[in-house]
Write a protein that binds this DNA or RNA. Sequence first.
DNA 1: ATAATTGCAAATGCTTTGCTTGTGA
DNA 2: TCACAAGCAAAGCATTTGCAATTAT
Lengths: 135, 135
Amino acid sequence: MNSIEKKCKIKGVRLTDQRRVIAEIMSNATDHPDVDELHKRVNKIDKKISIATVYRTVKLFEESGIVEKHDFKGGKARYEQSPDEHHDHLIDINSGKIIEFVDKDIEILQNKVAQKLGYKLVDHKLELYGSKIKK
Amino acid sequence: MNSIEKKCKIKGVRLTDQRRVIAEIMSNATDHPDVDELHKRVNKIDKKISIATVYRTVKLFEESGIVEKHDFKGGKARYEQSPDEHHDHLIDINSGKIIEFVDKDIEILQNKVAQKLGYKLVDHKLELYGSKIKK
DNA sequence: ATAATTGCAAATGCTTTGCTTGTGA
DNA sequence: TCACAAGCAAAGCATTTGCAATTAT
């Protein structure tokens, strides 16, 4: 059983054949696919799963905290399994490649800024856009 | 003449009656209105300006670097006049209120992160979502 | 059994665009 | 003058939803 399926069990999310396939694909993904891409991958296992179901499932997983949705530049939402440890993203503006990174110092500063403004930080989005430095 | 009109002159962006009205509204806005909201405000001055023109103008201004587009949570793009000094945003998750802030230390760290990953930082997006701390 | 889920197609909401008429420099 | 802009309605895209049929527990 894949990791997302396990989380579904824990969270009490009902599993269906379709959801199991989507969970499998997303558990194994090492990138940040959009719904179209997920649908394509899912269809390699089961041709009958509709894109509406992928949309519904991905939303369900997100609302259950099982996957994370990202709205990077480009219009379509992209998904990844919720990581154990939070990370942010650097997007290569030339290739579109996404690199994950963690920076505790930035996180600390974000909290400080929020606090200074009289707010409790609930969530944040940090995206860096860059171009590769050639050596 | 309002500040956006001035920038248009400098950048060689042709001015029309409609663009002048939109420039006026955006120059005076202290918030981050979406296209619908801009259209409403614009229509108070000139009822005949279509929403298509607002979309086209806002896009033109953005491409000219005169205004900035933000894709905060909520689906619709929101705009503000490009500030002299860059700032990021904290969004009150309860009221939707947007607070602007500047944090040079975070900016420095962002550059460092990018550099460490072999990238030159070209752009970034930092949004904090928080709830007000009651005293 | 029966409440939830699926597939399909139609509907949605934001944004863009083709086309004809109008207009700024 | 004449390339460019505006208005309108239609088209586009990503995403959501109503409904009838199917399925999980």
